[in-house]
């Protein structure tokens, strides 16, 4: 008897979590708490122009055929 009760309780809990934190139009569901911490180190590098210039790997030059003519 306990198992069905536990299953129902778990389902209610899941539904509650989805209702409380699930996606709504224009309001992403992912909690920002972790994200903000996580984001900060990404942003600290990606908003530092000089650092980016210094560490950016030169992109391999895309080889374009000289035989290509006309318009795409």
């Amino acid at each position: 008897m306990k198992r069905p009760i536990l299953a129902v309780a778990a389902a209610i809990l899941v539904l509650f979590v989805i209702a409380a934190f699930g996606c709504t139009e224009g309001e992403p569901a992912v909690t920002p708490v972790e994200g903000e911490v996580v984001a900060s180190s990404c942003v600290s590098c990606h908003s530092d122009k000089d650092l980016l210039k210094a560490v950016a790997s030169p992109e391999p030059e895309e080889a374009v055929s000289e035989a290509t003519t006309g318009e795409g």
């Binding site: 992403p28 920002p32 903000e36 911490v37 996580v38 984001a39």
Partner: peptide, 15 residues
């Protein structure tokens, strides 16, 4: 709104 999601949530990697 998108920024608050956090970079790694969408892009992966390890910040």
């Amino acid at each position: 709104t998108h920024g608050k999601v956090g970079c790694v949530i969408c892009h992966g990697g390890d910040s």
